[in-house]
Design a protein around this nucleic acid. Structure first.
Lengths: 202, 202
DNA sequence: GTCTATATCAGGATAGAC
DNA sequence: GTCTATCCTGATATAGAC
């Protein structure tokens, strides 16, 4: 297979293993085994573990931006798009209970390691923050759009952390419902341009 | 110095280093150096790293319970006690911005390592959860005391995670104010038995 | 571009002197 | 109870054949 393909496979496997086992606890041998590659060949593609981390973060940022752009293409309203963001917690609940939020846990691990890439990792949060702020601005809340965006992000992170610690799926369902209700109260259902669409329970 | 003192010093240093650098990234050599002890002697006190982790978690749980008991002794109202919990975020903001929440980050790291002690670490959260639920019950919210307790814990964790990721103190101040306002709206200032006390801004 | 073999080093853990 | 010396394993990283 071509070098580009192999490189992509390595980054893909590293992305998953960094999430499931943590950055420090994942060895090159683990990644090489997951890709079906020898350790020696590994260094043809990445010289250091830090370089690999950079590629993983870039991949996550790109896929996040692509996902947000795809949501933007959807015909639904800003409120529905924000709800779609919140619903990630429910859709990914199994992995979140086992490993936490991929972005939050990586940022915290890199903060403790005082790693040079910690701001790059935080840029993934920044992508969500900017996108959410744009949605709130579209709802006429331009003045405090960033604060509202951070509030949604903050609650998402809190939900993920507690669900992981207590291994409790009920926390996710209850707090997602509460966050959805907060959203409806904050921006109002009146803001929805498609009032005939079926209402999700909150 | 006596064996008990040395052991205590080791656990104290490990507690700090596990928090600041993470469990996996902290080596016996790091701890021994911090205590001023040789690596060899280290094993007289703790046979394995897991055993040391157990002692650190036990220490954190004990100090948490002692702190909560001390707050209970205070003459203030349940609402004031819950606010005291929330204010930890402000008081410890410098360390939180640098290293996150000690409990949340440990639970997440142990979850990724699939470590046997992960439930013991979560028990520290359990102590806060039970204490907060007791305060809400004292405010006449016995029916949903646990949900309210988890909500406060959840928001504390979310605030800590974002403050760490963005290295932003303003997030803490803004969201602590929002959480304090939520508390006042939820249980009502009328619940306060000391209505003549000066009002904290929210 | 992929392999095997190997250098180098750090961390966990042990043995035994004092 | 503390030390020095040492073993063992696993991880990063390199060299060179194919």
């Amino acid at each position: 297979m071509g070098a580009t393909d192999t490189r992509e496979h390595i980054v893909e496997a590293a992305d998953r293993l960094f999430y499931e086992n943590g950055y420090a606890a994942t060895s090159f041998a683990d990644i090489a085994a997951a890709v079906g590659l020898s350790r020696g060949n590994f260094y043809y593609h990445f010289k250091t573990k830090d370089e690999l981390l950079g590629a993983v973060i870039a991949r996550r940022l790109a896929s996040t931006e692509a996902m947000l752009a795809a949501w933007e293409e959807g015909a639904s309203s800003p409120v529905a798009r924000i709800r779609r963001f919140i619903d990630i917690l429910v859709m990914n609940r199994a992995k979140i209970i086992a490993y936490g939020c991929p972005v939050g846990t990586l940022c915290e691990e890199l903060a403790k390691l005082d790693h040079a890439a910690q701001d790059d990792a935080a840029a993934i949060f920044g992508a969500y923050r900017g996108w959410l702020a744009g949605e709130f601005a579209a709802l006429g809340r331009a003045a405090d759009a960033d604060s509202l965006a951070l509030h949604v992000l903050m609650r998402s992170q809190g939900i993920a952390t507690l669900a992981t610690a207590f291994h409790d799926e009920a926390i996710i369902h209850r707090e997602v419902a509460a966050l959805t209700a907060w959203l409806a109260a904050e921006v109002g259902e009146a803001s929805r341009p498609t009032p005939t669409a079926p209402q999700r329970p909150s």
